[in-house]
């Protein structure tokens, strides 16, 4: 049965653009059902702001089913808020109580420049994928899908890391602003599969080096795993490092063959 929360204070980061100073702004939600999602609460706030002639709070969101990876809120200092394995859009008000003060901020990482209010630019993730996060298989020439049996455990393990939604919580949670969990997840997905073997070493080299251009370095804090809404294991980083180290030898050897 639904209950109502009363007197929620939202401390929300407002910043008109990347080059101007931002500040926290307080807004009080008098009453809200605990069935509402966190983002529905922001919808209600925005409707009220527009009604009062004020500018609505800008925030990224879309599917509201925890799968598109668009929403990106730092809630009380935790990426996507207090509930483990949950995106901000799937966080519901039943996780909070009356009279709470909730601080809402954007992802803060130098690789994710701020656009406005709670919205940041995560294009650097796309640059990593563009540099090698794929299997080269042009449309049209694929062999029969059952030609290569893939052991169930391998397919399942690949799927575990393929579940990454690219939201950036790992980067936001990392004290160094590193993207190792994101990059490692894609490498673990593709490098585990037989289809991914041909480009295994060139992939990891290209992706890690692009990652290093944009993001900070990993120092094994493990905050990324704790923040990941898909609970992707930090093991993928070890796998990435192992393949990267091998790539540095293997690629050099292959390229110097003749």
């Amino acid at each position: 049965m639904s209950n109502h929360l009363k007197n929620i204070t939202l401390r929300i980061w407002r910043q008109a653009g990347p080059n101007v100073k931002g500040n926290f702004e307080n807004h009080v939600i008098d009453e809200i059902t605990d069935e509402a999602s966190f983002l529905e609460m922001l919808d209600i706030l925005n409707d009220k702001l527009v009604h009062e002639g004020k500018e609505a709070v800008v925030f990224d969101h879309d599917c509201r089913e925890g799968i598109c990876g668009t929403c990106s809120l730092m809630i009380d200092g935790q990426a996507h808020g207090p509930q483990r394995g949950t995106t901000a859009c799937q966080l519901h008000m039943r996780q909070f109580k009356s009279n709470d003060t909730i601080t809402v901020e954007p992802w803060r990482a130098s690789a994710f420049p701020l656009i406005k209010d709670l919205m940041v630019d995560r294009s650097a993730f796309d640059r990593i994928i563009e540099s090698g996060g794929f299997i080269t298989a042009d449309t049209g020439g694929a062999p029969d899908a059952n030609l290569i049996p893939i052991p169930k455990v391998i397919a399942d393990a690949a799927m575990d890391s393929a579940e990454c939604i690219g939201c950036g919580a790992c980067v936001a949670a990392c004290p160094n602003g590193a993207a190792n969990l994101f990059t490692g997840a894609k490498i673990a997905h593709l490098n585990r599969l037989p289809q991914g073997q041909a480009e295994r070493y060139s992939r990891v080299e290209a992706m890690v080096e692009t990652m290093d251009e944009h993001f900070g370095s990993c120092t094994n804090h493990g905050e990324c795993e704790a923040a990941c809404p898909k609970e992707i294991s930090i093991d993928v980083i070890a796998l990435m490092h192992k393949d990267y180290r091998k790539a540095k030898f293997s690629n050099r050897k292959d390229l110097a063959r003749g």
Binding site: I135, A137, P143, A145, P149, P151, K152, A155, A158, L190
Partner: peptide, 18 residues
């Protein structure tokens, strides 16, 4: 065929087939 070639991790049987 195309999606498997792209590395889509479809569910598999224990024998490795789709």
């Amino acid at each position: 065929d195309q999606m498997v070639a792209q590395g889509v991790p479809f569910a598999r049987e224990y024998g490795g087939l789709l």
